[in-house]
């Protein structure tokens, strides 16, 4: 039981991080129809920005805010300068371009911060635990869950009730139609990338807290969140979040219970496990958890 609580808490924390990554990815896809393969690099950039912001003495919450803003602005710049001029080009062009952008960001990180791993600053002892149902749960896990929950709730409130959120939904449904109503579509795109970048930095900050360290390869974790995007249904924000949480949980449980069964072969089984889930899932539900064929009427 205590094992299970411990695993569930770290699984959910990992899942919350996946949810943040997947949500940003889906937001960008819905707005720009771009598969942003640079998303993991934005995440890594955010983690380094967090380390740097704390390094210059900013208190933790301010440092987090600064790191999120810096990453958001970087994402916004990528959209404005590199992707927007390629209007109407085939999808593979933008895909290749985002891979290239990711490479640029990675190079920039190495140039600015070097290749040595850093420790992620935390306002509490990195190994501090809280007792829940008799199990020792990392405070960092709880913080990741709480932080992600706050960000996700804020995102859904914005999209559901704010005028800006409505403009974003309208623009992603039909750009020209939105323009014709006076909605500044270019600006909504920029803001979508800003938000996605901020979510990536938040994910990077929490990810860097776990025994894992802050280094460039943090970017590859975003690849593990990719199945969450597809399982959730590429266009569904809610699906991305639910699938992210589930995959995090499954991955941690697989690591604890399935890997040992597979002996040598199972050494890193939990890393491929999300992909196996994704493939099986997509065979039975090609539109994802909450995805559906688009409503159309002629």
């Amino acid at each position: 039981m205590t094992d299970l609580v411990q695993l569930a808490s770290s699984g959910l924390a990992l899942g919350a991080i996946y949810a943040l990554i997947a949500l940003g990815f889906v937001a960008i896809y819905r707005a720009s129809k771009v598969f942003n393969f640079a998303h993991g690099d934005l995440l890594a950039f955010g983690a380094f920005a967090m380390v740097a912001a704390s390094g210059i003495g900013l208190p933790w919450p301010l440092a987090l805010l600064a790191a999120m803003l810096a990453t958001g602005l970087l994402a916004m710049g990528v959209e404005r300068v590199i992707l927007r001029p390629l209007v109407g080009r085939p999808v593979f062009v933008t895909v290749i371009l985002t891979i290239f952008v990711g490479y640029l960001i990675r190079t920039a990180i190495l140039l600015i911060w070097g290749s040595n791993p850093r420790g992620m600053p935390t306002p509490w002892e990195p190994t501090a635990t809280v007792e829940i149902l008799g199990a020792k749960v990392l405070l960092g896990s709880l913080a990741a869950l709480a932080g992600a929950a706050l960000a996700l709730i804020a995102y859904f409130l914005l999209m559901r009730f704010a005028k800006l959120g409505l403009a974003m939904r309208a623009a992603s449904a039909d750009q020209e139609s939105a323009l014709a109503l006076g909605i500044p579509v270019g600006r909504t795109l920029g803001l979508t990338w800003l938000i996605a970048g901020m979510l990536a930095a938040l994910a990077g900050t929490f990810l860097g807290m776990f025994p894992r360290q802050v280094e460039v390869n943090l970017a590859f974790v975003a690849l593990a969140a990719f199945p969450a995007v597809l399982v959730g249904g590429l266009e569904s924000a809610l699906g991305a979040v639910v699938a992210g949480l589930l995959l995090g949980l499954l991955q941690v449980l697989a690591q604890a219970y399935v890997n040992p069964l597979l002996g040598h072969f199972g050494h890193n089984f939990h890393m491929v496990f999300p992909y196996i889930v994704m493939i099986i899932f997509l065979i039975f539900r090609p539109y994802g958890l909450f995805g559906e064929a688009e409503v159309k009427r002629v």
Binding site: L166, R169, A170, A173, D174, A178, E294
Partner: peptide, 14 residues
């Protein structure tokens, strides 16, 4: 060119 996946009310608000 209505926004098909938005609600009727959200279309008007947009």
């Amino acid at each position: 060119r209505i926004f098909t996946d938005l609600s009727v009310e959200d279309n008007l608000r947009a």
